[in-house]
Write a protein that binds this DNA or RNA. Structure first.
Lengths: 253, 253
DNA sequence: CGCAGCCTTGAAAAACTTCAAACGGTGTGG
DNA sequence: CCACACCGTTTGAAGTTTTTCAAGGCTGCG
């Protein structure tokens, strides 16, 4: 696989702490096998057993849970560097369905391989733990939005969250390859209502939209509109100089 | 602190894998200091820095996020054995507020101490990771309910989830010390509507309620009503015989 | 006894869904 | 190259769910 793609994954962890070469190699080891997936293809169905995990190396994907009555909730839109499928790790069967939004590249690995990584690189295990908590906090914000905010503020938050996660070299324009149907499945709204809300936000001047391109005109105003604080990570720590039992704390404070 | 209370915490991990004495001791080490908290008291406010973590040893507590406009979302009702506050670990400031529902006992510890535990007991780190993913799956189910299910099915799911987590020696009766206001804050409903829905479920014969005692009359019917599958954990694994780099996989399959 | 917190009920308003239909782009087969 | 079908977006109108506002009753506690 291309080294540059893998580096995206590693960079994600580097936001939590800088990695030692051994740690970076351990991640590379998990990415041995890669798969190319076509847009809309199901990467892993809920119920699959045993549940695998996946690094998303390129493209957009999504995680969803289906209901017996045909509805589905999209829980997360995944960007390159994300670990996908981890919530199923403790369970006998996969909890969530993973689907490619655009064409994408993934690297599947087993939970056993990840468990071994925890043994071999305990500090990397800690970083995986922190990443999991970060995901949990994102879900908590999303649940808060679903429960407490109306459709307008909920959509505004989604745009802010995606904006924060995208490398936006291109100013505050974000290209979001999700249909309004899919956005509805993320927010718990009908596509019809999503459309009305999108146009409302546009009309109000909070965003400017053309097709699937969204421009966040005034970030501060949008954030104030939503009313949830931005989450800032604790400062990353340097990698330990060697692999011996580090006398320094992992996260100086 | 009482050994029996701590054992509750350890038992929670034992659902994922049986613990070695060293691992159990590591958890005990985290529980060195304990605090008694009065009902309704705030244990830790969002924004607190640095964010601590807590073992809940006794009583009910809850985790919530507040909004600038006064609303709040309750994200989880905590029972003895739960780790609380972990979602804030990667962040500079605490993301969630933790409040005692009933009088309770907690054991606070720092994220640095937990990071050290990952170093000293890597397999225990893996179990913490699995527990975090389990929490994540629970949030995903809750978000699915909030987005896709109506108020009735959403409340039914909450009752099923609490029922599954409670040690119910007393048949399918559960005593839930949450006010209808608080249940509303969990589900994203007004207390008025919660009340109507509770009485609807009672009238339909899906539950029988007296005060804060809820009897789940017919579990199978309730589950079918909700339409989300029950989540079953992968079988726990035995503790490794010693602490040497285990040649066996951590989770035989 | 009186207060405070919680539960309960009713009626009107708001938010969101459902149903229905039309428009525009895009790819495919004739 | 055109016609057609399909998918996603857009708009309108009616219906359902949930909220808001208001008020009364119950219980436990000082």
């Amino acid at each position: 696989m291309s080294a540059t793609l893998l580096e995206i994954s590693i960079r994600r962890f580097a936001a939590l702490a800088s990695l030692t070469p051994a740690e970076a190699n351990a991640i590379r080891g998990l990415c041995e096998r890669t798969l190319a997936i076509a847009a809309r293809e199901v990467i892993r169905d809920e119920g699959a057993t045993p549940p695998l995990l996946y690094f998303l190396l390129d493209g957009w994907a999504m995680t969803s849970i289906g209901l017996s009555d045909g509805g589905r909730q999209i829980l997360k839109a995944h960007l390159p560097g994300d670990v996908m499928g981890a919530p199923s790790a403790p369970f006998a069967e996969a909890v969530e369905t993973i689907t490619a939004v655009t064409a994408c590249t993934v690297a599947p690995f087993t939970r056993e391989a990840l468990a071994q990584t925890f043994q071999a690189q305990p500090r990397l295990g800690w970083l995986f733990f922190l990443a999991a908590q970060q995901e949990r906090a994102a879900l908590m914000d999303r649940l808060t939005a679903a429960g407490q905010l109306g459709a307008h503020r909920n959509l505004a938050l989604l745009l802010l969250q995606l904006h924060a996660r995208l490398d936006r070299a291109s100013g505050d324009d974000v290209e979001i390859p999700l249909t309004q149907q899919q956005i509805g499945d993320m927010l718990g709204l009908t596509p019809v209502h999503v459309n009305r809300v999108v146009r409302d936000l546009d009309r109000e001047g909070l965003i400017r939209r053309a097709g699937r391109r969204y421009e966040l005109v005034d970030l501060a105003r949008l954030r104030a509109f939503v009313g949830l604080p931005a989450r800032t990570l604790a400062p990353p720590v340097q990698a330990a100089a060697d692999d011996s039992p580090a006398p320094t704390t992992l996260r100086a404070r």
